[in-house]
Design a binder for these strands. Structure first.
Length: 312
RNA sequence: GCCGAGGUAGCUCAGUCGGUAGAGCACUAGACUGAAAAUCUGGGUGUGGGCGGUUCGAUUCCGUCCCUCGGCA
């Protein structure tokens, strides 16, 4: 189909440590574009070293959006990401500037490009009540089976995040989440997208993640955490539960040596990279996979993508 | 050299009154619609230190050698 062409959005993603940020910076400079962060943790101010956030110099070279926009105690989720990122991408397109969504949070990227059903948002009061009941021994999975057997059958009894969300949606809207999901079908497509997934051979990733982890601790991850704590942020905030930060907190609490904290951070990062790959494979069909060394090819593909009228 | 303890999965270990073995972590595959660096699901990957003996059958019992750790010389 021709007609009104949708705004174009170039997505650059890949597992942690694949080299997304560097390549995206190159692409954005060559294309004269701007970067919209798609990393769930780079949103938080003060979490710099452990998130390998782009430096001030890098951000001076290319405009970056959605970085350092949250305090550590601010709630955030895929819906808020969608609401923040979509207007940015549309605005860049309207201004004639290539928009690049760059980051490893696959769920956010899919939400941006495929949407989320427009049901009820998070209800913290309800969540708190549920948590209390679960504490008291309530079988939430069984409860879900009564109101939404389809979803209960799909979810493992231990998957409390999804079970609580499903109960919440039913409680607030009176409709099972499975109905919302079927109706929505992840069928939104507000953008014309080119999705580039960067990846490297296992051996290479292993070396890079080792080096990356050592560098984070060498650059003062422990001091960064200490200063966040000194600023009064409690250690149970969401971003403190992320890789590198939780291990550092364990170290500061005396439960891990520095060496153990670094080793566990490395292992967790490697495991996370694997999960990301699995997500990109199954949830981002149509993505084009490259080795970051193929920068020339990627740039050429990106130029074509932004230059040509896309005809479907 | 002597005495003691121990060699079982990639690591730390459990167990087998003799019927070829299993936990955690690691690894691997997967799921994912408002917590996503989160949350969860499946999979055991093994010359049981070497050689010999007893036995229908040895990782298990016996002998011997090797190795590791500790103690004594």
């Amino acid at each position: 189909m021709n007609g009104e062409s949708r705004p174009r959005l170039l997505i650059v993603t890949g597992p942690t440590g694949s080299g997304k940020s560097d390549l995206a910076l190159t692409l954005a400079r060559e294309l004269g574009g701007e970067i919209i962060n798609a990393d769930s943790l780079a949103l938080y101010r003060g979490f710099d070293i452990g998130t390998a956030k782009p430096t001030a110099e890098e951000r001076a070279l290319v405009p970056h959006h959605l970085i350092d926009v949250l305090n550590p105690d601010e709630a955030f989720d895929a819906a808020r990401y969608l609401r923040a990122a979509r207007p940015l991408a549309e605005g860049l397109h309207a201004a004639g500037r290539p928009a690049l969504a760059v980051g490893g949070t696959g769920f956010y990227l899919r939400s941006l490009t495929a949407g989320l059903f427009e049901g009820p948002g998070r209800d913290d009061g309800f969540r708190a009540r549920l948590a209390g009941e679960a504490e008291a021994g309530a079988d939430l999975h069984a409860r879900l089976a009564e109101v939404d057997p389809e979803t209960a059958a799909r979810l493992a009894p231990a998957d409390r995040v999804r079970i609580e969300r499903a109960l919440e949606v039913h409680h607030v809207s009176g409709r099972p989440i499975s109905a919302w999901q079927r109706e929505h079908g992840l069928a939104e497509a507000p953008f014309e997208t080119l999705t580039i997934v960067l990846d490297r051979p296992a051996r290479e990733m292993e070396d890079r993640l080792r080096r990356r982890t050592r560098l984070m601790f060498g650059r003062g991850l422990v001091a960064e955490v200490e200063s966040l704590l000194a600023a009064g942020w409690p250690p149970d905030l969401k971003p403190f539960g992320s890789i590198g930060y939780r291990e550092t907190l364990e170290h500061l609490a005396g439960r891990l040596t520095l060496t153990e904290a670094e080793e566990q951070t490395f292992l967790a990062t490697r495991r996370y990279a694997k999960r990301q790959r699995t997500w990109f494979r199954s949830q981002m069909p149509g993505a084009v996979w490259f080795h970051p060394d193929q920068a020339e090819d990627i740039l050429a593909a990106a130029r074509r993508f932004f230059a040509n009228a896309i005809v479907e």
